[in-house]
Design a protein around this nucleic acid. Structure first.
Length: 515
RNA sequence: GCCGCGUUAGUCUAGUGGUUGAGGACGCCGCCCUCUCAAGGCGGAGAUCACGGGUUCGAAUCCCGUACGCGGUACCA
C-alpha cells in the first residue's frame, strides 16, 4: 500500500565525500555545493551557532559553492525582527558573507520560513497525492492517555487514524474537525543508513521513525517537515549542523524520500560546552558573538578560536586566518567529541592578533576605543598621530582585549592622578621616596629635548647619587606619575605625558611621602 | 525506558596496528631579559590514551562489554 522506505546509501566513503558522486547522480556531474545556515531569530547569535555558520561558510568557499542564509522564524512567540537584524550583524562582523538570503536575495527565496507556507502546502499536496500522508484526529489529551497506558516510556504514535476511510476523513475535515497530517511510514521498514561526512556510517533501526506529525492542526509545518522542504527546494547538497540533529536525521531522510528528493550529505558536529560540561549558555558568561564583541575581542581572533574548537589542520597549526581556514577546510577533520570553550585560550589568541596587527591599524583601533571611553576625541587623534602611534606601540603587548585599553592609558588623559592607597603605602611612604621625587623633579626639569631616551639617561643617574636601589627610585617615580605600581614603561610614559604634567605630578606626590 | 553519539594531561587538539616509553597549543611552574607589568626567549611539571575483557608477534589505534557524559525520543527548533 505504501512504498517501502529505500535503503539509503552513499557511494562515497563517509569520511571523504566525493562531490561528484555525493548525491548519487551521474558520475560526470559535478554539482555546485550548496550549504545553508538556518538560525532561529529567538535570541542573539550564540558562539555554537556561529561555529556552525563558520563551518558551512568555509565549506562553501572551499568548494566555490553557495552559502545560503535562511531564517527559521516559525516560532512566532520568540522570533523577532531585532534578533534577525542582530544575527545578520553578528555574521557580518565575523566576516561570514552569504550568497543567498536576507538582503542578498537569490533564486531560491523567500528566505524566511514564515514566508514559505506555499512551499510547505505544495509539499503536503504532493504527499497527499502519493498517499504518503494521512490526517489524524487524535487529540493531544487522548494521545497522552494512550501513551501513559502503554507504559509511560513510549512517545510514539499508535496509528489509530491510519486506517480511516478516506471518504469519512474528507467529511470530518470538511466540517472543520481539528487534525494534523502524519507521515505514513512503511510497516516493516529496513534500517536507515547514511554516511555522515564527519562520523562515518550511521545506522538507525527503521522503527526509529514512526508516523510523526508533518503539519500541525493550525496548518503550520513542524521543524522536521519545514526543514526538509526548504533544504530540498533550496537544493541544499550538504547539511552541516550540530549534533543535536543527528537523531532527527532518519526522520528527515524518510521525508526527503517521500518527497522524491535526493538526500543531501549530512555532517554532524558536536556541541560546544561550558567548563562544567554542559551546553554553553549565558550561564557560563559570554555566549553570544555580540557579548564577545562588546568584551573587546577581535573578530579575527574569535573566528580563529571557534574554528579550532573541534577542527584542526594538523598537529601544530594554531593561528589560522579565514583564508587558511577556507583553503584547508574538510569535513572529515571535524572532531566528533564535544569541546569545552576555554576563554583563557581565546584571550591569549586575541593578544596574538593584536600584536600581529599593522601598527597603524592597531593605533586607529586604540584611538577608537579611547574615544568610546571618553578619554580623547577625533580631533586630538588627528592632530598628533605620531604621539598616538608611540602610545600604541607601548600598549599593544599589554593588551588582551580592547576593553583593557582605557585602563592601560588612562593616566595620560587626566589632569590629576589619583595615587592608589596601596601604592602609596608600599612605595611612597618608604624611606627615601621623598628625596627621590625631589631629585627626579630637578633632573627632569633640565632634560632637553624631553624624549624617552634622554629622560632615561638622566634618571638612570639617580639611584647612585641617592644611594638607593634603582628599583625603588623608579617605582617611586612611577607611582607619582601614574598613580600605580604597575604601568606602561616609565621613561616612555613620562615622555608622552610631557614635562609640565610630569613635574606637576611629582609636586603633587611629594606631600604623600610623609604619613 | 528506548535509540544514537562521545570519552588522549585542567582545556583545545595530533594520532586510523609497530618510527609513540603519545606530538603541538592555552594555562601552570622556573630561569633569562628587565624601571613595574606585559611581550619575547629558554626549560619544566602534567596523560597508567575512561574502565574491563578480547583479536594480534604487537593496540590510544580493531572487536565486545561496563561506567560516565551528551543528544534525541513532542502538534520545540
Amino acid at each position: 500500500m505504501y512504498p517501502r522506505a529505500r535503503h539509503v546509501r552513499r557511494e562515497h566513503s563517509g569520511r571523504r565525500p566525493s562531490l561528484a558522486r555525493a548525491r548519487g547522480h551521474g558520475q560526470h556531474m559535478v554539482e555546485t555545493v550548496r550549504v545553508r545556515f538556518a538560525p532561529s531569530p529567538t535570541g542573539l547569535l550564540h558562539v555554537g551557532s556561529a561555529r556552525t555558520a563558520l563551518y558551512n561558510w568555509a565549506f562553501a568557499r572551499h568548494h566555490g559553492g553557495v552559502f545560503v542564509l535562511r531564517i527559521d522564524d516559525t516560532d512566532p512567540e520568540r522570533s523577532t525582527d531585532e534578533n534577525t537584524a542582530a544575527i545578520l550583524d553578528a555574521l557580518r562582523w565575523l566576516g561570514l558573507d552569504w550568497d543567498e538570503g536576507p538582503v542578498a536575495g537569490g533564486d531560491h527565496g523567500p528566505y524566511f520560513q514564515t514566508e514559505r507556507s506555499e512551499s510547505y502546502a505544495g509539499a503536503l499536496a504532493t504527499l497527499k497525492e502519493t498517499g504518503r500522508v494521512y490526517p489524524c484526529f487524535c487529540t493531544p489529551e487522548g494521545l497522552a492517555e494512550r501513551r501513559t497506558a502503554a507504559g509511560g516510556a513510549w512517545n510514539g504514535y499508535d496509528r489509530v487514524c491510519r486506517g480511516l476511510d478516506p471518504a469519512d476523513t474528507a467529511e470530518r475535515i470538511e466540517t472543520g474537525e481539528p487534525h494534523v497530517w502524519r507521515l505514513a511510514v512503511a510497516d516493516d521498514p529496513p534500517d536507515i543508513v547514511f554516511d555522515d561526512a564527519v562520523r562515518g556510517e550511521m545506522r538507525f533501526p527503521g522503527t526509529a521513525v514512526d508516523d510523526f506529525v508533518l503539519v500541525r492542526s493550525d496548518g503550520t509545518p513542524t521543524y522536521n517537515f519545514a526543514s526538509v522542504v526548504d533544504d530540498a527546494t533550496m537544493r541544499i547538497t550538504h547539511v552541516i549542523r550540530g549534533d543535536d540533529h543527528l537523531s532527527n536525521t532518519p526522520k528527515q531522510i524518510v521525508v526527503f524520500e517521500a518527497l522524491g528528493h535526493d538526500v543531501p550529505v549530512f555532517a554532524h558536529m558536536s556541541l560546544i560546552m561550558g567548563t562544567d560540561g554542559k551546553r554553553l549558555s549565558k550561564r557560563h558568561g559570554a555566549a553570544s558573538v555580540k557579548a564577545f564583541r562588546e568584551e573587546g575581542y577581535l573578530s579575527d581572533a574569535l573566528v580563529n578560536y571557534i574554528a579550532l574548537l573541534g577542527w584542526s589542520i594538523d598537529d601544530k597549526t594554531v593561528i589560522v586566518s579565514r583564508d587558511e581556514l577556507v583553503e584547508h577546510f574538510v569535513l572529515s577533520r571535524i572532531a566528533n567529541n564535544p569541546a569545552v570553550f576555554d576563554v583563557e585560550k581565546l584571550l591569549w589568541m586575541n593578544g596574538v592578533y593584536l600584536r600581529d596587527m599593522e601598527a597603524d591599524r592597531f593605533r586607529d583601533i586604540m584611538v577608537g576605543e579611547l574615544e568610546r571611553a571618553g578619554l580623547t576625541d577625533a580631533t586630538d587623534a588627528a592632530a598628533r598621530p605620531e604621539w598616538y602611534g608611540e602610545l600604541a606601540a607601548l600598549v599593544v603587548d599589554r593588551t588582551k582585549t580592547l576593553n583593557d585599553l582605557p585602563g592601560l592609558v588612562g593616566f595620560l588623559f587626566t589632569d590629576e592622578v589619583v595615587v592608589e592607597e596601596d601604592a602609596r603605602a608600599k612605595i611612597l611612604l618608604k624611606e627615601g621616596a621623598g628625596a627621590a621625587i625631589v631629585a627626579a623633579r630637578e633632573t627632569l626639569e633640565l632634560v632637553d629635548p624631553f624624549d624617552a631616551e634622554r629622560i632615561e639617561a638622566a634618571l638612570r643617574g639617580l639611584p647612585e647619587r641617592l644611594e638607593m636601589k634603582s628599583r625603588l627610585v623608579f617605582q617611586t617615580v612611577r607611582v607619582a606619575v601614574t598613580g600605580t605600581t604597575v604601568s606602561l614603561p616609565l621613561f616612555e610614559s613620562i615622555a608622552l605625558l610631557g614635562r609640565g604634567p610630569t613635574l606637576a605630578r611629582l609636586d603633587a606626590a611629594l606631600p604623600l611621602t610623609t604619613p
